[in-house]
Write a protein that binds this DNA or RNA. Structure first.
Length: 423
RNA sequence: GGAGAAUUGGGGGAGUGGUUUAACCCACAGAUUUGCUAAAUCUGCGCACCUCAAAAAGGUGCCACUGGUUCGAAUCCAGUAUUCUCCGCCA
């Protein structure tokens, strides 16, 4: 959520920012400013009334203790007249606040100055790429053929048990999944991230904190009785660990990592884009989250990018890093780098990680703060990234490492998998 | 699932309708003094919003949460959440 003060102080900044992000709602800016003025006016009025009432109540108490009962009764009737007025104003304040809030949360985060202009994924900027595309000559197959051939994933069984988009990993496929999770977590923990194992369901306040609510409700599965949301990413519970807290600034940055399944009800889409592991409703992911001081959050973002890049390099997958253009960025992000690996069996790029700085957009909702050198409370910057999302990494390994003898296992993963080939 | 009890600031903890402006202790920060792996004394010590160009100052709200009763609520009432104890059920 954008801070309301920003609307008062720097309207131009907001107008420019939302234009870059391709958000159509310039007229809402003036609405926010008007509602904010209304709210403040009402509050000043309300406070004055309350101050009078408080004083009167105190005087009544004093009169009663002095035994002046009649005078006290007289004062009571005077005060009662103000009560209705105060009640009306309180009601108006609630209305104004609710509408103000509902309007402000519609605004996306403002993009960082380095974010390229653009509306579509084609306008994302390739920052750099690495790794070598394998030469598979004529024998290349997509992962859904290979997983069937080696009995690693049973998509049909998933259809039977649940529905489409819920693959069942079997035998060495399940083991590969487990090895990847373990490898990723160990790599993150070695880099100083503290491991969390959070709930897979969250309440409304938590889903609101990271920006899933109110607008992205349709993306999440929800339990019928309790109304809990199944997490679409570990970012949701993990970032909320620090909701409503003030972190000592010498404890920044806070580094957290978690493995969780992720549940997403995506809008219907068919064909090769969603074939196999390319897009599923339940998948595993290891996430990294940091809470950072605003002064160095962009250095930290670059560090997180290097961290993820190294991990992909360890797996020996060809990759590229994109800086997303304004129109392709997520609602809450100020700057996002996407990682894509080249999937040789399909001859296409697959997104495996997204690393973002949200600045104060999430912390303003969650009230995650620190004390600055003057003792003033300030909002922290929140950042997160995938390290990594499992299914597409699995697809990439299976396709890029396919050989006539079987699927080779990248060297760095072998200690976790226990052997060097699937055949 | 049933019955009972509880929830106060960073921690402990007092407070059962009106000089409580939430006592007191600890922790923490600053100053002073004595001096040296510290102690004593004094002062300060939460969050949010509003008035104000800002600072200073003042106002309002916050005792788990949401409402209610009252001129006045940490205190009384109702609902919700969480924790503890006992019973039941259970991997």
């Amino acid at each position: 959520m954008l801070p309301i003060q920003l609307f008062r102080q720097n309207k131009e900044l907001i107008l420019n920012g939302i234009a870059k992000k391709n958000f159509k709602g310039a007229e809402l800016v003036d609405k926010v400013i008007a509602l904010d003025e209304e709210r403040r006016r009402l509050q000043a009025e309300n406070d004055a009334l309350a101050a009078t009432a408080n004083l009167a109540a105190k005087n009544i108490g004093k009169l009663l203790s002095e035994g002046k009962k009649q005078e006290a009764e007289l004062l009571k009737t005077e005060v009662a007249a103000n009560k209705d007025k105060a009640k009306d104003i309180a009601l108006l304040i609630n209305e104004a606040e609710a509408e103000l809030h509902a309007t402000v949360v519609k605004f996306p985060n403002l993009p960082h100055s380095s974010v390229p202009f653009g509306k579509t994924p084609e306008e994302n900027e390739v920052v750099r790429s690495g790794g070598v595309k394998p030469d598979l000559s004529a024998q290349k197959q997509p992962h859904w053929e290979l997983t069937e051939k080696y009995g690693l994933i049973d998509f049909e069984l998933g259809n039977k048990l649940t529905g489409s988009g819920f693959p069942v990993y079997v035998g060495q496929g399940a083991k590969l999944q487990r090895a990847l999770i373990n490898f990723f977590l160990t790599y993150n923990i070695d880099a100083g991230y503290k491991e969390y194992y959070p709930p897979y369901m969250v309440n409304e306040a938590t889903a609101y904190g990271t920006g899933q609510l109110p607008d992205k409700e349709a993306q999440m599965y929800q339990t019928k009785e309790e109304g809990f949301y199944l997490i679409p990413t570990a970012e949701v519970p993990v970032t909320n660990v620090y909701r409503d807290t003030i972190v000592a600034d010498n404890n920044l940055p806070v580094k957290m990592t978690a493995y969780t399944p992720c549940f997403r009800r995506e809008a219907g889409s068919y064909g090769k884009d969603v074939r196999g592991l390319n897009r599923v409703h339940q998948f595993d992911k290891v996430e990294i989250v940091q809470l950072a001081h605003p002064d160095n959050s962009y250095d930290i973002l670059e560090n997180m990018v290097l961290h993820v890049e190294k991990l992909i390099q360890l797996l020996g997958l060809p990759y590229r890093i994109l800086r997303l253009c304004g129109g392709d960025m997520s609602f809450a992000s100020a700057l996002t780098y996407d990682f894509e690996i080249y999937s040789a069996g399909q001859d296409r790029w697959l997104e495996v990680s997204s690393v973002s700085n949200f600045e104060t957009f999430q912390s303003n909702r969650m009230k995650i703060r620190y004390k600055d050198e003057n003792g003033k409370t300030q909002l922290v910057h929140t950042l997160n990234g995938s390290s990594l999302a499992l299914p597409r990494i699995m697809a990439g390994i299976i396709e890029n490492y396919q050989t006539p003898e079987g699927i080779r296992i990248p060297g760095a993963l072998q200690p976790y998998f226990g052997k060097d080939i699937i055949n």
